[in-house]
């Protein structure tokens, strides 16, 4: 676990969520109850698979940028995350 320095506030799908600073966006989504992060081409729910930035299954929109691999991005205060984007 990375060093935790207090909490940061995120906006996940328009909902305010407080998480420990330093955790990844994928972990923050799981804490917020979103194991399914996106829909596949045929509409299946999908979540993090490889945990190391290879499979791209955990991608979401972060601060307006599409297709960010949430397992590779640390949470920042005020970050806006849109799942199923």
């Amino acid at each position: 676990m990375p060093e935790l320095a207090g909490l940061v506030s995120l906006l996940i799908d328009g909902r305010v969520v407080n998480v420990p600073a330093g955790i990844t966006v994928a972990a923050a989504l799981a804490r917020a109850g979103a194991l399914a992060i996106r829909r596949s081409r045929t509409g299946e729910p999908r979540g993090a698979l490889c945990g190391m930035g290879i499979c791209h299954e955990c991608r979401a929109e972060i601060d307006g940028v599409l297709h960010q691999r949430t397992c590779q991005v640390p949470c920042g205060d005020g970050m806006r995350i849109q799942t199923d984007a």
């Binding site: 990375p2 804490r31 194991l35 992060i37 729910p45 993090a48 490889c50 945990g51 397992c71």
Partner: peptide
Amino acid sequence: WTLPGVSGAGGLQALMKGGLP
């Protein structure tokens, strides 16, 4: 194997180190 909650073994360890509860 595509269901959310199914991950790699090293993958789950990496996610956990990233703060996954």
